[in-house]
Write a protein that binds this DNA or RNA. Structure first.
Lengths: 199, 199
DNA sequence: GTCTATACGCCGATAGAC
DNA sequence: GTCTATCGGCGTATAGAC
């Protein structure tokens, strides 16, 4: 019988473990308040060396997170567009997805919304420039062409729509909106949609 | 005739100079990417010691900025409320003020909007909890009481209204909206107001 | 691919002369 | 209240044994 309260077996850390732990820490404390020591502790290895096996440096972790999250969002949006015809239905499902993520994986939305990516990765594209969000603008443009959405600049329409949605998600994440996300979900959708819908 | 391309006279730095320079740097590069060396260079003194005469540490500079900006915003809002009766007029002037600031002093809006104050000053109140923004919620609540604004939770109404406004200002600041702020000003106001106005 | 050990730069902050 | 000088420490990153 050995007394290994602190395990003596070596911990093998995977790239995915590092990403999950980092995302959580970045969302909680911010990128700059998170040290590699924090990450190393979170994945329960003894030194930060293990992390350098997977990532060149701390920035590379943030880059991987950003691109992974946006890739997966982009795929979800493709799927949504495939399954629905009308812009209103597509937008509705996109909003559903974002609210679901806010509830079930708040770190992801926190990372996308609150973290200012340009401060961490000056070279990186801002949200609106990414493929995922361009697809949303495209959905809106189609809605304009199909007379579902009033004919204004699609970027402006995006702006109104997502201004309301993202501000709502922000208030939920910060805890300034006390009740659960579900109760605001329908109302936020209505307000956002009506800000762009054809009367 | 002396060759003092680099002035030999001692530079006396004021608290205000430090605040102005820091605000600019924080807005441009972010708080964590700004070192005291950067600030010292910006106010053209030889060492950071001068800064410590005015501020206990780097955080204290951010604190002073945050509270100064919000105090002055709060005073402006008081003034606006005094000069106008209807909620629509008051909100309209508040929006005017924010757009004017975005054009003439973008650092201020950048600092309020993009900088995540909780990351820098974990103890500090978030925007929505500050006196200035409480006053805006109050304006909205009055508008609800006076039947100008539809009767929903005032925080939600605030959320819709300022979601649109702040998202628009954010796009302008980031340069993603190409034209000048003026051209979006009226449209954003309309969309924001209609998202909460009684039909 | 983890471990121990360590290098080292940068930055925040201070001491003390002027 | 600015200056020179310097310090301590943290955080990133690497070298090399196992």
């Amino acid at each position: 019988m050995t007394l290994d309260t602190e395990s003596t077996t070596k911990k093998v850390v995977t790239e995915d473990e590092i990403l999950v732990a980092s995302l959580k820490l970045f969302a909680e404390k911010g990128y700059f308040n998170t040290s590699l020591t924090d990450i190393k502790d979170a994945v329960e290895i003894k030194t930060s060396s293990g992390i350098y096996q997977h990532f060149k440096n701390k920035q590379a972790i943030a880059e991987a997170l950003y691109s992974n999250i946006l890739d997966s969002l982009s795929i979800s949006i493709d799927d949504i567009r495939r399954r629905n015809r009308k812009a209103s239905e597509q937008l509705r499902e996109i909003v559903d997805l974002l609210f679901k993520l806010t509830e079930q994986a708040p770190e992801i939305i926190q990372f996308l919304w609150v973290i200012n990516i340009k401060e961490i990765l000056p070279e990186e594209k801002s949200l609106i420039e990414t493929t995922a969000f361009n697809k949303i603008v495209q959905v809106i443009q189609n809605g304009i062409n199909d007379n579902e959405i009033r004919s204004i600049d699609s970027l402006l329409a995006y702006n109104y729509f997502f201004g309301i949605i993202s501000h709502t998600l922000g208030l939920i994440l910060s805890g300034d909106l006390e009740k659960n996300a579900e109760s605001y979900h329908a109302q936020a959708w209505m307000a956002a949609w009506q800000s762009i819908a054809k009367k």
